[in-house]
Amino acid sequence: MRKSLSRYFPVFVLPTLAAFTIAFAVPFVMGIYLSFTKFTTITNAQWVGIDNYVKAFTYDGDFVHALWFTALFTVVSVVTVNVFAFILALLLTRGIRGTNFFRSVFFMPNLIGGIVLGYIWNLLINGVLSYSGTDLTYKAEYGFWGLVLLTNWQLIGYMMVIYIAGLQNIPDSLSEAASIDGASPFKTLIRIKIPMVMASITICTFLTLTNSFKMFDQNLALTAGLPEKETEMLALNIYNTFYGRSGWQGIGQAKAVMFFIIVAAIAFIQLKITKSREVEQ
């Protein structure tokens, strides 16, 4: 068995390994190297040390502002998306008429690309705001809540599907035992359902957290940072740094490396916390 495994290693693993190396590992290492250089194209890089990292913070406050804005946005989105998705999942596992139809309807927004979605919501929200003579670019708050709304609309359906799968996996014997013992529906929810779907909560918070933190297309299409970069999120800030000034590619790259570390760290901590609360069935 071992022998045949190692014999077929090249056929089954090598192509994937090569693809992984070429498409991920090499660019990743090169990216880190480039963040310490000044470059126009990747072949003419000159070493500048940590200069780029210093400039990312000292040149202007945009990066730090984008970081806080993104963090706030992420917190609000993670909470709202998961709460609404869970409520929908509860409603749609009760066997009401048209359950399948509603599930499809809620899932559909997830199939639309970010840029398109951004433009559609830009038109919608501006259409509503025009009654008060303003638009999305008027105040940072408008842009912020616009982004939250868009993210909710896009992600709720997907998370709902995961929660539905989790809820359907709860053994009937548990809920029956609870109702025989006289537990109220609310108590059942808190003591039985939520602990039993912790695995779904882990994956859903992970997905919403990373998706919100890395958001780019929707941000670009909905507000593009207006007014005056107040609604600029991290990914968009990196993009603008990279292409906004000649010779600033290295600084954009340095920001991108920090961005990776932040996203990885937050996702790792979140996984640790929620995983520890999962229960064995």
Partner: peptide, 14 residues
């Protein structure tokens, strides 16, 4: 730079 022009454009909007 492009960054300069963009930020001036954003100021003009305000």
């Amino acid at each position: 730079s492009a960054a300069f022009k963009e930020s001036f454009g954003a100021s003009l909007l305000k």
